[in-house]
Design a protein around this nucleic acid. Structure first.
Lengths: 215, 215
DNA sequence: AGAGAAATTATAAGATCGTATAACAAGAGA
DNA sequence: TCTCTTGTTATACGATCTTATAATTTCTCT
């Protein structure tokens, strides 16, 4: 009988405070991120995430239907935060295309984004995306938005400084790949280079663009 | 009672052929790779890998002690194959530094390496490396070897063509990051660019190096 | 042919997993 | 104060997990 333990004694249920569904979903999503941060793929577990959020596992099913929906939601939280942070940095920069692009680079290597734990969550998510149509769809949308943002930054730079880029889309893809690759490399091997060096490598790439190194 | 099923009838054990321990380890390692290829993280399971190899789960414990040792072994198989394939391609190229570097680039985008399933295994492994000191140690060694190989290719090119590179190690890190980033991007979004475009982006990077885009 | 080493199977224990659902409690609104 | 909606807990089922180990089989060597 609910509320009564094996010895027949009445056991009170845990007290809780009701929350708006979206607030609770957000709480569970952030708990999921923390679990992945701590345990990698082994942290993707209804019980662990519920415990991290301070609730019971039934709440996960209630709000998300199944664990993969929660993981996809957590991925969306993370993706939205990333693009928002980068756009905020660009918007806060001096309004020349050069300064805006450089603000983008600096933000990419700032401690908020260029953090071993944060990048580790990304790496685990990339592995999960491959086997989740739901997450794959989200990722494709976010990747397109990200590359489009980079295209604008590179296009503005070229127009502002009077040089041509053969294929802006491919250049944006290359720049994005370089950044992701540096994130990955540093995450796996933090001793391989310093954030300042990472920024320099990106600036070098931009210098190459100016010098005509494009298809 | 061993050998007798529930109905009391004597059930013969499965027949098997003994193999040398290293042959069996190799078989299990390759089965592990196939499971990760098919199922991602969900494929990292003693039962699934044993089934894929056509043996029973006791064999995994016998040969590897625990599942994480098998996964690390599979990772080493994969890493060894990668570097070997790239070095073979470079060795088979015409002996000029330019041709050797270009052979490296072409091999990196050849169907053997630039394959959705193969790259998918890498992405999953990257996530696993972060939470496995054993795999992390392996990865660091392999990353160092890979970057050293790239350093030699870039250094030879610069010497051969009479241009200077400010910091060859950082240039090698950047080139490696660009390649890994392109592999990752294509694996997650195969429609974002074609292999030929990927090679071109790498050649563009090299062009930039020649033009002085380095720190 | 037989002994013996060791490769391998079969089985089991204890743990954790995801999902489902009945029951309860919070709290808003009348 | 009471009703009712709905957020949430508690519990359970069936499945899968890893590791351990006794027993069996393969196959080499004498």
């Amino acid at each position: 009988m609910a509320g009564v333990n094996a010895g027949g004694e009445r056991k009170e249920r845990a007290r809780f405070r009701r929350q708006a569904p979206e607030d609770r979903r957000r709480q569970l999503g952030e708990a999921a991120l923390r679990c992945i941060l701590k345990h990698g793929n082994a942290g993707v577990s209804v019980r662990q995430i519920a415990a991290e959020a301070g609730v019971t596992q039934g709440l996960v099913t209630h709000h998300f239907g199944e664990i993969s929906e929660l993981v996809a939601y957590a991925f969306d939280i993370m993706s939205g935060s990333l693009l928002q942070a980068l756009m905020d940095a660009v918007a806060a920069a001096a309004p020349t295309p050069h300064e805006r692009l450089d603000a983008f680079i600096e933000a990419s290597f700032s401690p908020v984004l260029f953090d071993r734990d944060v990048l580790g969550v990304w790496v685990v998510f990339w592995g999960l995306v491959l086997h989740s149509p739901r997450m794959s769809a989200s990722q494709q949308g976010e990747y397109s938005d990200y590359v489009a943002a980079v295209e604008r930054l590179l296009g503005d730079l070229a127009a502002s400084e009077g040089f041509a880029i053969g294929d802006v889309r491919l250049a944006a893809i290359a720049f994005t790949a370089l950044l992701d690759g540096l994130w990955l490399a540093w995450c796996l091997n933090p001793s391989s280079f310093r954030p300042e060096e990472g920024m320099q490598l990106c600036r070098n790439w931009v210098k190459g663009l100016r010098l005509g190194a494009h298809g």
